[in-house]
């Protein structure tokens, strides 16, 4: 069943002349983990904001086309209710801390207080997501006294605790160091295994190649490619659009130029695929001699 259906979406921010998204059409199935790649300014954040309802309800501007999430027209929903259906986590971990609460535990409970969840259920749900995101030991710390990776997991837990049907992540690791990035991706993989529908804008293609079910590439507001990570991430046009490619793909492409990659084999996107390819080349050489 398709959870997200977008038909010919064109959106222009207020006081700008060029659309941020142009005739975007895509569908996402329930339980799918879809990564959105594209250079800066391609419209990734705009797409995330649209799914989460902040476009057109927070940023006004002009929206054309059809956006349906969980069967509902995004234009007809009320933002204050919509946040229960679609959860949004964005780049800056620091700005996602509410500032209203003094400990991590209270910070995660903040959303549940706002939507009127009874106290016992609140505690159960808060403790559940703290275990899921691996931040139990931070419960009594100030949410401001944490590392970026810890803060981003608190932000993620604060949204997950509201049990949204769809989780939208807008470059959640772009301001994190490699350790923070791994911490966040591990949580996201756990969620994907649990069957949460995840839409994630992300630059780090090595991680996408490992985790995502499907990749959508955006450039200048248009969809320029969609398919499995292996198909989209090895698309030779990506560098022309300013989209980074996996270092495994880059190495294999250079090797292929010198005849050192098996001709029939697709270029690799993960370390394992690269290793398998180069071993095949090695064996072929061994046979020759």
């Amino acid at each position: 069943m398709a959870v997200i259906e977008i038909q010919n979406l064109t959106y222009t921010y207020p006081a700008t002349s060029h659309p941020a998204l142009r005739e975007v059409s895509l569908t996402v199935e329930a339980g799918e983990f879809v990564a959105i790649i594209g250079p800066n300014g391609a419209g990734k954040s705009t797409l995330c904001y649209t799914l989460a309802g902040f476009i057109p309800h927070f940023f006004k501007g002009e929206l054309q086309g059809e956006v349906r999430v969980a069967g509902q027209d995004i234009r007809r929903v009320r933002l204050e209710d919509w946040v229960l259906k679609v959860g949004l986590v964005f780049q800056n971990p620091f700005n996602q801390i509410s500032g209203a609460k003094f400990t991590v535990y209270e910070e995660i409970a903040f959303g549940l207080e706002n939507i009127g969840v009874p106290r016992e259920e609140m505690k159960r749900r808060v403790e559940e997501v703290m275990a899921l995101t691996g931040i139990e030991d931070l419960a009594d710390r100030s949410p401001y006294a944490l590392s970026g990776g810890q803060q981003q997991r608190v932000a993620l837990a604060s949204i997950l605790v509201m049990q949204p049907e769809v989780l939208v992540l807008d470059e959640p690791t772009s301001q994190l160091d490699p350790i923070g990035t791994r911490e966040v991706f591990q949580v996201i993989r756990r969620l994907a295994h649990q069957g949460v529908t995840i839409i994630m804008a992300e630059h780090k293609v090595e991680w996408i190649a490992e985790y995502a079910d499907r990749v959508i590439a955006l450039a200048e507001g248009r969809v320029i490619g969609t398919g499995t990570p292996a198909d989209v991430l090895t698309d030779p046009r990506l560098p022309d659009y300013g989209i980074g490619i996996s270092r495994y793909t880059a190495v294999a492409r250079r090797a292929a130029g010198e005849g050192l990659w098996p001709a029939e084999r697709r270029l690799p996107v993960t370390l394992d695929e690269a290793e398998a390819g180069f071993r095949a080349v090695e064996e072929a050489h061994a046979h020759l001699h």
Binding site: L79, E80, S98, A100, F110, L112, E113, N114, V126, I159
Partner: peptide, 22 residues
Amino acid sequence: ERAIAIEARGFRSSRPKTSLVE
């Protein structure tokens, strides 16, 4: 961004609020 963040946590929800601490 902060406004978006607290909105995403249902701050303007019309339901009656509850509280963690008694």
